[in-house]
Design a binder for these strands. Structure first.
Lengths: 183, 183
DNA sequence: CCTAGTTGTAATCCACTGATAACAAGCTTG
DNA sequence: CAAGCTTGTTATCAGTGGATTACAACTAGG
């Protein structure tokens, strides 16, 4: 098969991780086969396992990078303007790569698995704290902000929002309420 | 094994369905084995399959009943008082049986499966419409209402809310913002 | 250039899981 | 009570999917 390139384990690991985010985002923790991830990464399935030890550890790694990205996005938005509105605007960037937020959603869903629940609780709490810190929002303001994010994420999962979305009257109606009058 | 009782297929089907809601709510679509449902219902695994044809059809049936219950709860709340606050209050009843809302969440997560996505989109849209109709809320008001519900559901999935919840500072802080001043 | 470490694969395993088939037991209706 | 439908089980299958092992190929350093 085509030009085979040898990478260091760390580099290949990053590629596999990217593939894992795509795959887990699309099909969830239990619904994703390590084999799909391997094919996405252009690597054999056993090697995926060797690089990360376990499917669960790979999923956790995916959740971690996704949360890192979310936090980084929020931090950058706060640098430009430390308001909830600014962070809210940056949500569009996150939604652009649909899988990011979906991985987090699948993390919530898989919280029954103790090892996963631990990480998800920790990271979601961290995001809540970050939002409050960088914007100075009250607990209630931060809650409303995160609520909105959850609805957006869920609608993204239902494929009624974002690129390649299915257009439905109710979904369009809800979407319309997000657009600020001016921009 | 104890006193075996023979039920009609319809009756047994309802029992299995109740078990399915519990199991799917706890472990999700892909994470739940038909065998667990069978044991919960006190029935053999093949019989579960015969009653519903397919694991997927059983999951869809679970989603349908859950949505029926949610709609019924909202309708009753609206009968008492047709306001969003009233429906919001009735959310506590729904949260009392943790699995109900979690089944819906797992439905969102499994929306990648076309057959599941179709049902979930249809039912969630129906709930949105119902909320608007019985309360006269604007699209934006309804959106905020559903957003809040999504956050509650997600926190329930993370096990930081509801009965047998893990107590965490950030979660308690968010929870506190829900309590109305008076009651 | 040769030895040792690293990157990667192929082959295979084995446990699991949804589904099917064959059969047993119970109810009911003429 | 015999025939036939319904309820339910046991046995079993066939496919899958994560993980392990053994091996191949490349690379670097002395």
């Amino acid at each position: 098969m085509g030009a085979r390139v040898r990478l260091t384990a760390a580099e290949r690991g990053e590629e596999v991780l990217r593939a894992a985010v795509q795959a887990f985002g699309a099909s969830g923790y239990n619904g994703t086969k390590t084999d799909e991830i391997a094919r996405l990464a252009g690597v054999s399935q056993p090697y995926v396992i060797r690089l990360f030890g376990t499917k669960q550890q790979l999923f956790l790694a995916a959740v971690q990078t996704v949360c890192d990205t979310i936090e980084q996005t929020f931090r950058q938005a706060a640098e430009r303007e430390p308001t909830l509105a600014s962070l809210g605007h940056s949500y569009n960037e996150l939604m652009a790569e649909r899988e990011l937020l979906l991985v987090l959603l699948h993390g919530f869903s898989a919280s029954g698995e103790p090892a996963i629940g631990d990480v998800v609780r920790e990271r979601f709490g961290g995001i809540y704290r970050l939002v409050r810190e960088v914007t100075g929002a009250s607990p209630e303001e931060a809650r409303v902000f995160l609520s909105t994010g959850m609805l957006l994420t869920v609608m993204s999962a239902m494929q009624v929002l974002g690129p390649d979305a299915i257009s439905l009257p109710w979904a369009d109606e809800i979407s319309a309420t997000f657009h600020d009058p001016e921009d």
